[in-house]
Design a protein around this nucleic acid. Sequence first.
DNA 1: TAGATTGTTAATCGATTAACAATC
DNA 2: TAGATTGTTAATCGATTAACAATC
Lengths: 224, 224
Amino acid sequence: MEKHIPDIVIHRLPIYLRALELMARAGHDITSSQELGQRLGISSAQIRKDLSHFGEFGKQGTGYDVDFLRQQLRQILHVDRVWDMALVGAGDLGRALAHYKGFENRGFRIAAIFDVDPRKVGKPLAGIPVEHTSRIPELLPARGIRIGIIAVPAEAAQSVADLLIEGRVQALLNYAPIRLSVPDEVLVEYIDPVIALQSMTYYLGARQGSGQNRSQAEPAGHSR
Amino acid sequence: MEKHIPDIVIHRLPIYLRALELMARAGHDITSSQELGQRLGISSAQIRKDLSHFGEFGKQGTGYDVDFLRQQLRQILHVDRVWDMALVGAGDLGRALAHYKGFENRGFRIAAIFDVDPRKVGKPLAGIPVEHTSRIPELLPARGIRIGIIAVPAEAAQSVADLLIEGRVQALLNYAPIRLSVPDEVLVEYIDPVIALQSMTYYLGARQGSGQNRSQAEPAGHSR
DNA sequence: TAGATTGTTAATCGATTAACAATC
DNA sequence: TAGATTGTTAATCGATTAACAATC
């Protein structure tokens, strides 16, 4: 009987894990909620509270064993295994993802690549043969792939999502700047750099620039 | 005398804007908080509350003029102009970002590219000459660039951030899977696909797979 | 006018933090 | 033992939602 754990807590765990991996590699054996919090800009109380949803991992007076907590988080997040993923889109972004070294060791691997461009189909990318997008529903279930990455233009993203779902995928990482409509049981995470940039320019706009970049005509003024 | 607006509200505005751009392109003239909310999976009350921080943009009984609200949000987020950005890292990811069409029309442009690889320096990428990373502090201020994108390996990310800050950059978009330490006044947003993926595998792990992907040795079991 | 939807208030809900007993 | 840090409780803080008067 699992009690419900807030989604926002789940989203912080990978950040804790990433910090612990780094500490482990730096030869750190022991840490504390305070040290971890300082490093991440999070209060120590919050880290202890978050972890307490899953069990007791520390020792009073000492803190946490870096490697033990790391293993526990890997289990909790289910990245103590390797998840095969299907990448759709072999353009520039797809290429970058296919070559990305950061998946290895963090629980993920691109195991299949799809594109609609006949010039790309058949040729390997990062050692993986590119298949035609239309074959997604046929090929995925047999390979046990449960995660899809969408790296196609916005116009194609929804139809690719539909194909992936037909292929029994349960989680989508969407790089297209568009909201997907999917069944309730399918998880979606979005990556859109412009969304991140625009929340920074909100704050930047109010500040002084360098004085050099005012060449562009400044429109009517701020809201209000 | 601006009252303080919660950061979480600011982070939702670009999502509203993106939806409005889409509606505008689809020929939608008018919308309502309800329609917008349904489309985004957000309550209508929240949308009205968020917007109310900045003024009154709607009409009782009618809703919002799509184009007017879109223009207002563009002003509020300061993307009613074009922001020049410096891209650091001309590898696969840098290439993908340099060619990315999604910056145009949403307020951004890559105006300078840097890399340390002498084979890349001097050659153009997406029509922009690649300069050596060491020239960042010298070149950025003169060009009025206030935003930097970090697309280099994790090991190099902090030193690149330091160079960008020396070059007077005020906002960083960091693709390296590492937390940067920067002065308080510098804004940072992080993009790490693995963080997004790991929060989904938390939920996926508890579910049934297809039965085919159990070939990999399953470790000790779930937490607890 | 009747119907619809806003902007806003007050109530609810949930997340963060402070504090501390337990204990290594 | 003295010092440190956990896990947890209760208090605080902040965000979301429900409801509705205002009004187009």
